[in-house]
């Protein structure tokens, strides 16, 4: 498939701190490309360099064949941008905002079908101020689509939304995907990346640490299940005991790796059933009481932890 975006060694330095370090990737036409990583991983900076809002300190990128530094006017005509902040005029109505943004482009789509598509018909004459968080994000996407862009940039579109509003937005993004719209989506929700993205670029501290389909990323883990449980507070605080425990957990059947943070232990396993039997036997021997015991299949979160030793939510 044809590449619509090519990124070659983009870097950005703020106050001597490298926030994006020579990232390289390509986005194919029609795919939803996810940038997944914790806050401060460099996702937004990467996106904003592609949007022409920040000047890279190194490297280059092209969108639809146009250089993002030398041909920014051409690039802007073919991209749609949704920023993390609301960035809209509170006192204008949905329809007025759409007309305003449509006027910025040489060629634009009729605004009313777009308003319908984003399920904002009822709010067409309501002011931005009175919209809910989900409605604002849908308007932001409608604004980004007004020039019928080849590439749509969505920067953490569901952050701060309630679960239902997130679902509605997912449906909209999936509908756009069905129509073949290329999208670059940044998020720090692994479930979101898993549901929406064709390929995911895992970022941490300004670097790409993995890039593949969600399925392949999970498969790359040596283990497919995780056994999780919580220890009592006083035990969890005893680091000597924990060190000892971790050693003995490592020897349980089928366990490939052990993670322990705060009160919670995660045993990655090739065979959850055998691990569980062994774990319960260990509990009996050492008379430790576990709580919140559960098993689950491994997720992108586990991939991230394996690669960085930290979870997505702590940065």
């Amino acid at each position: 498939m044809e590449n619509i975006i090519e990124v070659d060694g983009l870097s950005k330095v703020y106050d001597k701190k490298t926030v994006v370090n020579e990232v390289r990737f390509a986005v194919r036409r029609g795919e939803v490309f996810g940038l997944l990583g914790p806050n401060g991983a460099g996702k937004t900076t990467t996106i904003e360099m592609l949007e022409g809002l920040r000047k890279p300190d190194g490297g280059r990128a092209t969108i639809a064949g146009f250089d993002t530094q030398k041909q920014m006017d051409r690039v802007k005509a073919v991209i749609g941008v949704q920023l993390q902040s609301t960035s809209m005029f509170d006192l204008l109505t949905v329809h007025e905002m759409m007309e305003l943004y449509a006027s910025f482009y040489e060629k634009s789509l009729p605004v009313e079908p777009l308003i319908d598509e984003m399920a904002l018909r009822e709010k067409m004459n309501a002011r931005v101020k009175g919209l809910s968080g989900g409605q604002k994000q849908r308007l932001a996407i409608a604004l980004a689509l007004v020039n019928d862009p080849q590439v749509l940039f969505l920067d953490e579109p569901t952050t701060g939304l309630d679960p239902q509003a997130r679902r509605v937005l997912w449906d909209i993004i999936l509908k756009l995907k069905e129509r073949g719209k290329t999208m670059i989506l940044s998020t720090h929700y692994m479930d979101e990346a898993h549901v929406l993205c064709d390929r995911i670029c895992l970022m941490d501290q300004g670097q790409i640490i993995a890039l593949d389909t969600p399925q392949q990323l999970v498969k790359s883990l040596s283990s497919e299940s995780a056994v999780e449980f919580t220890l009592p507070v006083e035990l969890a605080a005893d680091s000597d005991a924990i060190a000892q425990f971790k050693e003995s957990w490592q020897t349980l059947a089928a366990v490939t790796r052990v993670e322990f943070r705060k009160q919670t232990a995660v045993l990655y396993s090739n065979d959850a059933q055998r691990t569980l039997v062994d774990l319960l036997a260990w509990c009996g021997q050492s008379s430790v009481r576990l709580s919140d015991l559960s098993t689950r299949t491994a997720t992108l979160e586990d991939v991230f932890i394996q690669m960085t030793g930290r979870s997505l939510r702590e940065s």
Binding site: L53, K76, L83, T86, S87, F104, Y105, L143, N147
Partner: peptide, 13 residues
């Protein structure tokens, strides 16, 4: 501050 100018900068305006 609210990113309104930056958002407009992302268009051909």
């Amino acid at each position: 501050e609210r990113g309104i100018l930056r958002r407009m900068q992302g268009t051909t305006l």
